[in-house]
Design a protein around this nucleic acid. Structure first.
Lengths: 121, 121
DNA sequence: CGGAATCCTCGTGGATACTG
DNA sequence: CAGTATCCACGAGGATTCCG
């Protein structure tokens, strides 16, 4: 049922998918689009620190995987909206679970990190 | 309740935690340790493609965050076991949800990817 | 406004060799 | 066995400029 693949094998299909999802920006962009479609510039504002190059790249990847749709409205200036597909929305559930985990555990984790930093000479 | 932080802000605590989790190797190493404690060399074998440098680095990070414990057994040769802490185990739940999602959606996603590759001249 | 193209710089991370 | 220490290459990704 797994086609003989082992999830820890670098070429395992599910791992190839996971590699895209695990991407730093992908998680944040999907999160930004969770509520409603957004324009390119709106996403830029929401996701702090992302460059327009990375945003373009991330969106192309999501589009390529069928997780986001790109809609161009001809006008001057041009308007482009990005929206999660049903599959994209379904990704929010596990992603949200991860964010919740991070939020719940961040205090002890950040404390442990600082303690570690002090110990290290 | 969020200390005024916005999750998309680069300095938001939960995002700082997420950055570690989002790491390519971290997910795989935590997964490898899910069932039982493992020795260094055992993890190397399980996680295909990881170099010993990256494994060391990843383990140090997890140790630093209190998600993994490192136990040294003095002997010749030395034996070192790595084990998930309770916090580390709790991370498995959201991670598993993500893996499941990847497995469920991989077929259409990989197909969409190929279609995209063909279209592009 | 929403990019594409170019340049250039860091850091990631692999390969190798050596050590307790 | 389980690392540490170096060296090095490559690619991610930022800054900038230009275009439809």
């Amino acid at each position: 049922m797994n086609d003989g693949w082992n999830p820890y094998d670098r070429n395992c299909p599910s791992r190839r998918v996971l590699d895209r999802i695990g991407d730093r920006w992908t998680v944040l962009v999907v999160g930004a689009l969770a509520d409603r479609p957004l324009r390119f510039s709106e996403i830029t504002k929401r996701v702090d620190g992302i460059s327009q190059k990375m945003l373009t790249q991330t969106l192309r990847g999501l589009e390529q995987d069928g997780l986001v749709t790109r809609t161009v409205t001809a006008a001057v200036p041009v308007r482009v909206d990005y929206e999660l597909t049903p599959a994209g929305h379904s990704l929010r559930t596990p992603l949200k679970a991860l964010e919740d985990w991070a939020f719940e555990h961040m205090v002890p984790i950040l404390q442990a990190r600082e303690r570690y930093a002090e110990t290290a000479s």
